[in-house]
Design a protein around this nucleic acid. Structure first.
Lengths: 202, 202
DNA sequence: TTACTTTCTTAACAATTGTCAATGAAAAGC
DNA sequence: GCTTTTCATTGACAATTGTTAAGAAAGTAA
């Protein structure tokens, strides 16, 4: 059991290493220096990574598991904003960049292993390894393109087409996230999603 | 008239200069070297900056005027995806990053003056001025935070609240963009936006 | 100015979604 | 095993939005 965990961590460490290596030509020592700053955090199901009211002062690389970004409406409903899976970087930029209180929660959807890095440590790394700026820029470019596409989906498709799009392009979301969270993520009520699914199966 | 235009260009040039200066400590020579690579382009109303089917191979800084990102639905309707105003950088990242054909159009909403830079020139600048990576990263961070917020609005607010949000946070859009474009931007039909406006005024 | 085009509003009806309440199924805890 | 909780589905009705078509208002050009 001990060995299994060590294997798992070793494997996961290499994943983050690959992530960094593919985006800039760091030397092995540089990559090790960067990775050594990350801290491993294990969270149970439904544990919080970021709570509304607190400042998002770190980023996390998802080694294993999944997380849900959610916002509580004035009526008290929880609305899913986004999801994160293995290989994703997690933070709430609106809070992170301006050091202001977050209006969203980020909680685990299942037991998860994260590699975290504080904002201070990240900025130290930018200072120490200027090539990191490129890694940061490339990750942000990909993230921006992805989320912009997501917003376009909302503007151009109706509810059923959004669900079909999710089935086609993000089946892992439907497999791993409870359906009522998928519904609010699509901007509709769980009952409406049930109806859409029923219509599709006939 | 000649003088007026020169004044205008000089003024506008300094705007882009400020944009660069505030995000990294470039020397005056560096800023001049960077800015000299931009080309000034004047477009009339409803002229195209990017057409669907073509690759987005340049970025543009909006010196004056406004532009509309739009997508044509399978039914042939034009849907506004985003708008750009003075001070914004314009490109379609999905196409720009992967050199694939764009599925959206970017056209001027009014006569506009743009400062354009080709992808090749931009990457040369990243190479020549490593500090540019930081400028790029910072612009992307702001852009990502902004567009992520926009998507959250879609997921958490109903149509009326989205319109009220736009009134409060982006009144310039309502002042300068035709209402039927604002409607599709909000994900609704122009007739629905009219109804919402009528309900609000009673 | 007049004529023309574009944009915005209105109304009636159809279609979709939300709301509320009840039931069934699946998962979690004991 | 059982019980309890959570989640998904269904149906009836209300509320909202889409559709279609018409006309009013605003903007453009001759």
């Amino acid at each position: 059991m001990q060995f299994l965990e060590v294997d798992l961590l070793t494997l996961s460490m290499e994943t983050l290493r690959d992530e960094l290596l593919t985006r800039a030509n760091f030397s092995d020592e540089e990559v090790s220096g960067i990775i050594s700053k990350f801290k491993t955090v294990s969270l149970d199901k439904k544990e919080s990574f970021l709570s509304a009211g607190k400042v998002s002062d770190s980023i996390a690389y998802v080694e294993k598991g999944s997380l849900i970004y959610s916002q509580t409406s004035p009526e008290g409903d929880d609305i899913a904003i986004d999801f994160a899976f293995e290989g994703d970087f997690v933070t709430y930029l609106n809070s992170f960049l301006s050091d202001t209180a977050s209006d969203i929660d980020i909680t685990t959807n299942e037991p998860s292993i994260l590699k975290t890095l504080s904002k201070t440590e990240l900025y130290d790394l930018y200072q120490k390894y200027p090539k990191m700026e490129r890694t940061g820029r490339l990750l942000l470019e990909e993230g921006l393109a992805k989320i912009a596409k997501g917003r376009t989906i909302f503007q151009t498709m109706d509810n059923q087409d959004r669900y079909l799009f999710l089935m086609k392009h993000s089946p892992h979301i439907l497999q791993r996230i409870p359906q009522y969270h998928v519904a609010t993520y699509l901007g509709i009520k769980p009952e409406s999603l049930s109806r859409i699914r029923r219509n599709l199966s006939t």
